[in-house]
């Protein structure tokens, strides 16, 4: 049987001003099954968002294949997103980019609910409560929200659609520790309850560790280590993963800069 989502030796590059092309993703293979959470971690600029965009058909793939339920993902054209593509939902790294500034957050969550195959799954109020906002917030516009509130609305909107694959690109980066836990857990629970797969992107291994079953560690466009998240956390094999763990600042109140 095919995996829900499969990336096979994927390469993506971008045009660079005056300097040819930049290889952002260089031969990445990943596989995500339904009912699983795969974490993708790595340094800033290593190609995480590029992979997410490629899966959504937002950037062209130079080589390799990406398949969803065994069928290749097509580059999104000017046509409306085909229904197939609606089964993959993404929470963008910048929540300002995910949301329509001219529609209330309630309307935007309703838009998501409308494409959910299980029409009885959720209401707007359920989802708002799930992300720890009052149901009355449905009447607000995105610009009337704080950064963390906006991030939570983007998550509620993506969950509303009941996707088969949910991609969260740094979806909880601007929340505090206890809210991160609540929201990460919500994403995991809702995705898994419907048999969906969750691809959870973060630069922070300590966040991924809590939400993911497996993790892939990326550096400079390549996967340098992959495996069950507990193993990677406790016994990192790659030198890069070890460095990533060593630079996490300690909360000891001593004012020490990490890595010195």
């Amino acid at each position: 049987m095919n995996a829900l989502l499969e990336l096979n030796d994927v390469h993506v590059s971008y045009r660079q001003p005056g300097r040819g092309r930049l290889s952002a993703v260089q031969g990445v293979s990943l596989s995500l099954d339904g009912g699983r959470v795969l974490g993708l971690v790595g340094e800033s600029g290593c190609g995480k968002s590029t992979i997410a965009k490629a899966v959504c058909g937002l950037v062209p793939v130079d080589a390799g294949t990406i398949t969803f339920r065994g069928e290749p993902i097509r580059r999104l054209g000017l046509r409306r997103r085909d229904p197939h593509a609606m089964r993959i939902q993404m929470v963008f790294q910048n929540p300002y980019a995910s949301l329509n500034p001219r529609r209330t957050v309630g309307r935007q969550i309703e838009d998501g609910l409308r494409v959910n195959p299980d029409q009885s799954a959720w209401t707007v109020a359920d989802l708002l409560t799930g992300v720890e906002l009052e149901p009355s917030w449905a009447a607000r516009y995105p610009h009337q929200l704080s950064g963390g509130q906006r991030q939570r609305i983007a998550i509620a909107r993506a969950l509303a659609a009941g996707p088969d694959v949910l991609i969260g690109d740094e979806p909880i980066a601007s929340l505090d520790a206890s809210l991160q836990a609540t929201i990460a857990q919500l994403m995991r629970r809702l995705a898994l309850a419907s048999g969906a797969g969750l691809l959870f992107i973060s630069h922070d291994l300590s966040v991924v560790r809590v939400v993911a079953d497996d993790v892939a560690v990326m550096s400079a466009g390549r996967i340098v280590e992959a495996g069950p998240v507990d193993r990677v956390w406790a016994q990192p094999q790659a030198e890069y993963t070890r460095r990533l763990l060593a630079a996490i600042p300690a909360v000891d109140g001593l004012g020490r800069l990490p890595g010195s």
Binding site: S178, Q180, T182, Q185, D204, S206, V210, V211, A250, V251
Partner: peptide, 14 residues
């Protein structure tokens, strides 16, 4: 799933 998840670290000493 469904269990207490209040352990998620924002960042932690390690």
């Amino acid at each position: 799933d469904g269990a207490d998840a209040a352990r998620l670290p924002g960042s932690e000493g390690s």
